[in-house]
Each structure stands twice: as C-alpha cells, then as structure tokens.
Computed example of a mutant assay.
Amino acid sequence: MKEQKSIQLEHIRHWVKEALTNERTGHDWQHVTRVAKLALYIGKTENADLFIIEAAALVHDLIDAKIALEHRLEIQEVKEQLASFGVSHEQIRQIADIITTMSFRDRERRAEKPLLIEGKAVQDADRLDAIGAVGIARTFMFAGAKGNSLYGTGNSAYAHFSDKLLLLKDMMNTETGIKLADERHEFLLRFIRQFQRETSGLDCETS
C-alpha cells in the first residue's frame, strides 16, 4: 500500500509540474512544491493522513480562478485524473473537499463546513507561502502578471498587503502554522514600514 501511494504521488507530481511549470502569477510549480513541503511538515506534527495532505497540496491550485485559463482545470477534470492514477473514490472525495473549501476568498461562504486536519494543514501551508519574503515576492509577481500597479490604486500590489496578507497570521489553524506564521508576519511588517518610507520619500529627508 505504501509503495502504491508513492507511485500515485509521483504520477501526480509529474502531472502538476507539467501543468504549472510555465504559470506566471506565482501559483506555479515552485509554489506548489513549497506548499506541499510545509503541509507535510505540519501534518506530521498533527498525526494527519500524509497522502491526502500531499496530494491535495499538489493539486490545490489547478482549479484556482486566479491562474490563466490555459493552466486551469475544472474540479471534475482533477477528480478524473486522480482516478486514472488509481486514487480511491474516498481519497478523491477528501482531496476535492480540501481544495474546494480552503480558498481565502471563500472563507465566509465555507465557514459552515470546517476543514478536517488534513485540510487545515494544506490551508496553513498555502497561507504561509503568501506571507514572509516569498509571499512578498509572489505578490509583486502576481501584480505584474495581471498588469496591476505597484501602489496607489485599489488593485495595486501594495493594496494586497492590507486586503489579505496582514490578515493571514491570525487565520492559522494549527499550532505549527501559528508558530511558523509569526516570523513571516514580522518580516512582512518590516517590509511594509520600509516600503512606506521609500514611497513617501521619508528616507530622503535629513535631520
């Protein structure tokens, strides 16, 4: 059984890598591999099902509306592909439940259906990758891909910090996620302070 799961995960990795390698909004294969690694780390501390966690982390962005249509799939397509790799009906149901309920934008609509520990691990990992140094880099990568400005408008990269990123630390589900989020959040705050100084010209002033 362990060998079978390893083979299935290898198939999933290859499939997702092919699908997202050229993705340009920061929801690419590198993002997916970071989320999977973080999610597994969190899952191990929570005694969760590591197969479900890794599989869900690997496929979580394939249905994300933020990525380009050329990379995006419908949830049914994801289910069918997982089934072709021999993933069981029950496992596919669990994976689908995670990736269709973990989105930040759906947090209020999905509040009536709390995530299980596997989903909480993947959601924490995805949110961790949105803050800290890599989260900052992804924010500007996304803004560039979408043609949004650096700052000064409602859709700017800078607006995303207050709209979403600064909220994530207090939305972690697990003790491990909370601990990991603290350092990344502090880095985010330091960056914002320096960004504000530079964009307002305060760093040009002399005493």
Rank of each mutant, 00 (worst) to 15 (best):
L150N: 07
A56H: 02
V134R: 13
G26R: 02
I42S: 02
I192C: 07
F187Q: 15
F142V: 02
I136R: 08
G147R: 07
A145V: 06
Q94L: 08
D61W: 06
R190E: 15
N22A: 12
R127C: 00
I7G: 09
L73N: 12
A68C: 05
Q30I: 06
L40D: 06
G119A: 04
H89R: 06
I95V: 12
L20Y: 10
K17R: 15
T100M: 03
D203Q: 13
A57C: 05
I117T: 05
Q194K: 15
F51I: 11
Q94C: 05
I63D: 09
T25M: 07
E198D: 15
Q76N: 12
E70C: 03
N22L: 12
A181Y: 07
A157M: 05
H89A: 05
S149Y: 11
L50F: 10
G201N: 10
H11T: 05
C204P: 00
D124N: 04
G144R: 10
R184S: 03
I192M: 14
E3Q: 09
E18I: 09
T101Y: 08
D163R: 10
I67W: 07
I136C: 02
I52V: 14
E183W: 14
R109V: 09
Q76C: 01
R110T: 01
I178W: 11
S88A: 12
Q8G: 10
S6Y: 12
F51A: 06
Q4W: 10
H71L: 08
Q81M: 13
L82K: 06
I75N: 02
R184K: 15
L180W: 09
N148S: 09
A133Y: 14
K2Q: 13
A133L: 15
A159I: 01
F195E: 11
L50C: 10
K113E: 02
G119I: 00
N155A: 08
V35Y: 03
L50P: 05
I192F: 07
Q91N: 15
A145Q: 06
I92Q: 06
K179L: 12
L189E: 13
D203A: 12
W29I: 03
G43R: 04
H71S: 09
F104Q: 05
T199S: 12
K44H: 11
K164F: 07
G43V: 00
K37C: 00
A111Y: 02
H185G: 03
V32M: 07
Q123M: 09
E205R: 14
T21G: 01
G154W: 04
G132H: 07
A157K: 04
H185M: 09
T206K: 13
G119C: 03
N47D: 11
R72A: 03
H160P: 00
I99K: 02
I42F: 13
I52P: 02
M141P: 00
E77C: 05
R93I: 06
G86C: 08
E118G: 05
S149N: 12
